[in-house]
Design a protein around this nucleic acid. Structure first.
Length: 867
RNA sequence: GGGCGCAUAGCUCAGUUGGGAGAGCGCCUGCCUUACAAGCAGGAUGUCGGAGGUUCAAGUCCUUCUGCGCCCACCA
């Protein structure tokens, strides 16, 4: 047994973590004979720095994995990172720009070398930071989406999906970033509200007259191929089917009827540009309109824009307004609030463009993923998240999986000069169609999420049939944030069923969002987040973890430093409680056995219930509840009550069996409580565990406590409850009478129950209520010299000089309170519906209360009249 | 516009088969009681957003209104 510092400090966390790593406690092996329990870390971007969401998410996972490890499972928590294609590429492009270099000037291979260098230098920060949190990942199995094995899995998946016709190449309107020269997924488009201009124009219509419309993007008028109106809009019914003219390019376009158009908005007529607007694209599909792309990849106008060829989109806009004005076709410009789609990395306005892209057909693949949820095989910690998951699957569209960037898995498609496509994991020697040996590989790479979608099995060795894969797949829990449900959870489910024939995990834990003090989500882009490592630095990882865990990580929450302080205070409390126990174990002998007292059996019974509750709550992924219960037990029941109850025994005769029993039980209860707390606060519990015993070398692998029926002791619980009530009553009297703690008082207890619990517990009352003597008497005391209090099991008399007036007021208050309670109970018992339909136990409980309150009221009334 | 939520003590939040309203912080009172002042004991504070409904019983279930939040989409 070791000496502990006077106050808690977290300086030993790194040392403890290193020891765990050296000992290999985090490692998990297949076929160990134990049951597997697996969690896959949601791969953070290799470029990420730890932010508050990561910290919360990892706290959740570590709690789950540590619990299962202690419960004897072969617990694997597999860590890793993804290559964050777009974000990384953007950052490296920025970095080389400082040297005056561009991607193109470097060339593909040299650029990729720079990316690897860059990621070696800056990547991996997050991994170190996760270790600071105490994350018990199996770091030997750490993976990276761009490493050899995972890259092989990506190619394998692509080839298989292509061979089955699930992957196709198609022209699609995609979000195009003119700065990054890449398509971006819908997800990467940020909608920023801002002031915009709505330009009103009119086109001439055949047979005379005009049709007016409005647009925020005049430059796309060059690609207009129709005007659309609502089919039931009477204003335009005569115009439907007629042709209008786009003057700049002198194009004849039809006026079509489509119910997409909102007749109430603007003029009720919409220009249709299928080449540059997603909704127009859909209208175009319905009416067989031609698609005209008027823009180059850099956003400038192309040859389809006639005399605007070569202008930037901004210049073209100005010139078009000028031309329309000169033709008398310009009406007006109004200012509007306008949501602009911008690229979330570079904030340049997104341009919808027609491009040849690779797509993954989702409809059939999505079926088993949806079925898994509806059948209950896939469970979410909250039903609301399951709904979101199902919603996404119900409206799923084909997934554009190609990206026009270099950093990532290059699409394994090879083209011959005739444009035939040959697909292969390795570069084919000749074209599969024409035999040409002049092959060039597709320039595009795959969406990062494509590789992430394979994560649950690619990290375990797929497509190889490894023992790991067989043993650990499907995994148990996937813990992530709600905005990732569509991006990642849905896609992992789809790929899991596709390639493994089985779902990748059975439980999804969606953790809440951490907000700042104003209730705004903490995010990197807003910069309103706290740095979790600052908290670790100042307070320790245990404190950070307890703060998250005790504040229901499954719910949204605000980050509050008050809570951090509270967590720290709790650590100190626990630390000092252990110091106290250790101080009293100096002459401890493990072999000495002694019969347990009532309070010992009480705390054991309470701890036993706690063990059951905590285990159940953790299993049910209700971590907030579990944590709060542990904290309450340690602070309230153990420290504030049990330790105080046991003090007189500890300070008594050294060799007394009752003292030996107290020593034994203090240690036993504390160790078990530490075990329950360990998943939440691993470091302090390890430290204290090692100080309290020397048989086991770590708490991490120490068996998780189990509920034992034999330890449940309702009688002891009831007895101690009565004593607690008595103590509170006496403390109340002391507070009201302003008796300082140093002044001892004498107490007379008149039990109203037949059990002699008070006679057995005078040492407790003395210690906790500051009594010099506790007398148990069957007959009542004269009240004129004593303050009286009635509790459930006894009447309490504290002999003091009584201020009659004050005492009268106090008893009157007491009487009113009791009368109120009685009225409620009586009301219930006279309620026929209640008596007929309420469960019997509830009725019995109410009857018991009736009896109790009646007795107490009678007593108070008697005392009142005696005054 | 589509989807998912939230509204409980001054503040931040718990409250999971419907059965006497809770915690932390803050506030008031008294204590440096030999583990802990990062502490101990005691205390005050709520028409559980409004209105209906189901039920013997509603913070908890249903409907509706009001005010917020998040995700996705979007105005030609």
């Amino acid at each position: 047994m070791t000496e502990l510092n006077r106050t808690y400090d977290h300086s030993r966390e790194d040392e403890i973590y290193s020891r765990w790593m050296e000992k290999g406690y985090f490692r998990a092996q297949p076929n160990s004979g134990k049951k597997p329990y697996t969690i896959m870390i949601p791969p953070p971007n290799i470029t990420d720095k730890l932010h508050v969401g990561h910290a919360l998410n990892n706290t959740v996972q570590d709690i789950l994995i540590r619990t299962k490890r202690m419960q004897g499972y072969e617990a694997l928590w597999l860590p890793g990172t993804d290559h964050a294609a777009i974000s990384t590429e953007v950052q490296v492009v920025k970095a080389i720009a400082k040297e005056g270099l561009t991607k193109e000037s470097l060339g593909r291979d040299a650029f990729l070398e720079r990316v690897w260098e860059w990621q070696k230098e800056y990547g991996g920060t997050i991994v170190k930071q996760l270790k600071k949190l105490g994350s018990s990942c199996d770091w030997d199995r750490e993976r990276f989406t761009m490493d050899e094995g995972l890259s092989d899995a990506v190619l394998e998946a692509f080839v298989r999906l292509y061979d089955e016709g699930k992957i196709y190449r198609g022209e699609r309107l995609v979000n195009w970033c003119v700065k990054c020269q890449t398509t971006i997924s819908d997800a990467e488009v940020e909608h920023e509200d801002g002031e915009g201009q709505l330009f009103h124009f009119k086109y001439p219509v055949e047979g005379g007259g005009f049709i007016a419309f409005a647009t925020t993007r005049p430059e796309t008028m060059l690609g207009d191929t129709a005007i659309a109106v609502h089919p039931e809009d009477e204003r335009y019914s005569t115009l439907i089917g007629k042709m209008a003219t786009v003057p700049m390019v002198n194009r004849q376009i039809p006026i079509v009827a489509d119910s997409y158009v909102d007749p109430a908005y603007g003029t009720g007529a919409v220009k249709v540009t299928p080449g540059h607007d997603p909704n127009d694209f859909e209208i175009g599909q319905r009416h067989n309109l031609s698609i005209i792309n008027v823009m180059n990849d850099d956003g400038s106008i192309n040859a389809a824009g006639a005399h605007y060829n070569g202008l930037t989109r901004e210049d073209a806009r100005k010139k078009i307004i000028e031309e329309m004005t000169s033709l008398g076709l310009y009406i007006k410009t109004e200012k509007i609030n306008h949501a602009k789609g911008t690229h979330d990395r570079c904030h340049v306005i997104v341009e919808p463009l027609i491009k040849l892209q690779w797509f993954l057909k989702m409809d059939e693949l999505a079926n088993p993923a949806l079925e898994a949820y509806t059948s209950g095989k896939l469970k979410f910690n909250k039903e609301q998240h399951g709904k979101v998951y199902a919603h996404w699957l119900n409206i799923i569209k084909d997934w554009c999986i190609s990206r026009q960037i270099w950093w990532g898995h290059r699409i394994p498609a090879y083209y011959c000069p005739d444009g035939h496509i040959t697909i292969g994991k390795t570069p084919p020697e000749k074209c599969a169609s024409c035999g040409s040996t002049e092959l060039s590989q597709d320039e595009d790479t795959l969406d990062t999420w494509f590789s992430s979608a394979l994560w649950p099995f690619s990290t375990l060795g797929w497509p190889e049939k490894t023992p790991e894969l067989k043993y650990f797949y499907p995994t148990n829990v996937l813990a992530t944030a709600q905005e990732i449900i569509f991006f990642w959870v849905v896609r992992m489910m789809i790929m899991g069923y596709k390639f493994m024939g089985e779902l990748p995990f059975t439980d999804v834990f969606i953790n809440g969002t951490v907000r700042d003090e104003n209730g705004v989500k903490m995010s990197k882009s807003l910069g309103n987040g706290i740095d979790p490592l600052d908290v670790v630095e100042k307070y320790g990882a245990d404190v950070l973890r307890l703060t998250f865990a005790s504040n229901s990580p499954e719910n949204d929450s605000r980050f509050h430093w008050d809570r951090v302080e509270f967590s720290r205070n709790f650590m100190n409390k626990l630390w000092n409680a252990t110091r106290f126990v250790l101080m009293n174990l100096e002459d401890y002998s493990e072999n000495a056995t002694a019969p347990l007292e009532m309070e010992d059996r009480w705390i054991l019974s309470r701890l036993n219930s706690l063990t059951k509750e905590v285990t159940e709550k953790i299993d049910a992924h209700e971590l907030g509840m579990a944590t709060q219960k542990i904290v309450d037990f340690i602070w309230d029941e153990f420290c504030d009550w049990y330790v105080e109850m046991v003090k007189p025994r500890l300070y008594g005769d050294k060799e007394a069996p009752t003292r030996r029993a107290a020593q034994h039980n203090l240690r036993r209860v504390l160790i078990q409580a530490l075990k329950l707390l360990h998943p939440v606060s691993p470091f302090i519990t390890e430290d204290l565990f090692l100080a309290l015993q020397d048989k086991e070398e770590t708490i991490m692998l120490s068996p998780w406590p189990e509920y034992s029926k034999a330890l449940a002791d309702p009688a002891a619980e009831k007895a101690i409850e009565a004593i607690q009530e008595a103590v509170r009553a006496i403390r109340n009297i002391r507070a009201e009478k302003q008796i300082p703690p140093s002044q001892k008082i004498s107490v007379v207890i008149q039990p109203t129950t037949t059990e002699d619990i008070f006679a057995k517990s005078t040492h407790i009352v003395k210690s906790l209520a500051g009594a010099s003597s506790v007398e148990i008497r069957q007959e009542a005391l004269e009240l004129k010299d004593a303050v009286f209090a009635a509790i459930g099991g006894a009447n309490i008399y504290v002999p003091l000089e009584v201020d009659t007036e004050k005492e009268k007021a106090r008893l009157t208050r007491e009487k009113a309170k009791l009368q109120q309670e009685l009225a409620r109970v009586e009301g219930k018992l006279s309620n026929q519906g209640f008596m007929a339909k309420a469960p019997e136990s509830l009725v019995a409980e109410e009857r018991e209360k009736l009896e109790k309150f009646t007795g107490m009221l009678a007593k108070v009334e008697t005392e009142l009249s005696n005054l």
